[in-house]
């Protein structure tokens, strides 16, 4: 596979070149640290932050989109064309999350065209982490600060230059397109990358993750959910900042005979999430709703997809207005599993 280096002084030029016929999404400075934004001016790109406050999932799975429009008795399809897109500087956890979303939106052979139209045209350049963030735990959930899953190119910040490793054909094509700006990586570069990778992985904390699915099932009636439910405010912050949460709602918005069918993000923490048309709600308490969020990620997803739907980015922890910490919950669930 292609391994190149790019002098950091040329990053802007690199992005300008590749952004000529693509939409470019990259981290920019924000009052909450950094955020992914569609960037027209590459000089705004900021690669010094770790995890952006919101995940980049919106690039392929927007918060809301129109599925089709309708007027009185006929419906109009929306065009499914999407532009070539470069997602630059996503951290390996976020890239891995895209790989998980891919599984959901192609589950059991049923493709979601709205998701796939964007995803198929998105080239992901992931940026490996040299130091972990305040709530990072990627290695505990099977990830790595230098992980490759979900990315087309993996980049390393080597101080003066970026090392770029193509991981897919799309990634290789991307690097070839910018070959006038890059150099072939030397053995020294490759060694530096190996060292940086080892350093980065060492720095991450290890937390216990409950992996005994039968024990997790048993935890359904455990007492711990009660207090967690009292603490949980029932907002959608954790789900909306999460790179793997993918639940959505579909509603019709009409105005005088004209309307649109809209798909929008939803959150299992909301009390209306499971409210039936009949008025019955199977999840009546916040405890049941909080439990759903944790068990969906660590029990139901392993059952359905073979792996937990958490990449350890820590956004739900840094952003929870009630100070809930998923790591602490997982630790308690793990010790519960050992007892039973």
């Amino acid at each position: 596979m292609l391994e190149m280096t790019l002098d950091k002084s040329k990053v802007q030029e690199f992005l300008r070149l590749l952004g000529e016929n693509r939409r470019l999404f990259a981290p920019v400075k924000d009052r909450m640290g950094t955020k992914f934004s569609e960037v027209a001016d590459p000089s705004l790109v900021c690669l010094d932050g770790l995890n952006t406050n919101l995940s980049p999932k919106e690039v392929v799975f927007p918060q809301w989109e129109t599925l089709y429009t309708f007027k009185e008795d006929h419906a109009n399809e929306v065009k499914l064309a999407a532009q070539e897109t470069l997602l630059f500087g996503a951290r390996p956890c976020d890239a891995r999350a895209l790989g998980l979303l891919d599984q959901v939106f192609t589950w059991e052979g049923i493709d979601d065209p709205y998701y796939l139209r964007r995803r198929e045209k998105t080239c992901v350049v992931a940026l490996a982490c040299n130091t972990p963030g305040e709530a990072c735990f990627c290695t505990s959930v099977g990830g790595s600060p230098v992980g490759e899953i979900g990315a087309d190119v993996l980049a390393f910040d080597l101080g003066e230059q970026l090392y770029l490793r193509a991981l897919t054909e799309r990634g290789e094509a991307l690097l070839k397109e910018a070959s006038t700006l890059t150099e072939k990586a030397t053995e020294e570069d490759k060694q530096a990358v190996q060292q940086a990778a080892a350093e980065a992985e060492k720095q991450l904390q290890a937390i216990p993750i409950p992996k005994d699915l039968a024990a997790l099932k048993e935890s359904f009636d455990a007492e711990i959910w009660e207090e967690l439910g009292l603490k949980c405010l029932g907002c959608g912050t954790c789900a909306y900042v999460c790179p793997t949460c993918h639940c959505f709602d579909i509603t019709d918005e009409t105005k005088k005979g004209v309307g649109r069918r809209v798909r929008n993000w939803d959150s299992c923490a909301f009390s209306l999430f499971t409210l039936h048309g009949s008025g019955h709600n199977p999840r009546t308490t916040q405890a049941a709703r909080y439990r759903q969020r944790v068990l969906h990620k660590f029990l139901y997803c392993p059952e359905n997809f073979g792996e937990a739907f958490c990449v350890g980015c820590g956004r739900c922890i840094t952003n929870c207005p009630a100070g809930l910490d998923l790591r602490a919950v997982l630790e308690r669930l793990s010790s519960l599993a050992k007892v039973t």
Binding site: L230, K231, A322, G323, L324, D325
Partner: peptide, 12 residues
């Protein structure tokens, strides 16, 4: 106390 610095959590 919550696990992150400068953060607390309600408790019962």
């Amino acid at each position: 106390a919550a696990s992150l610095p400068l953060k607390t959590s309600p408790c019962f």
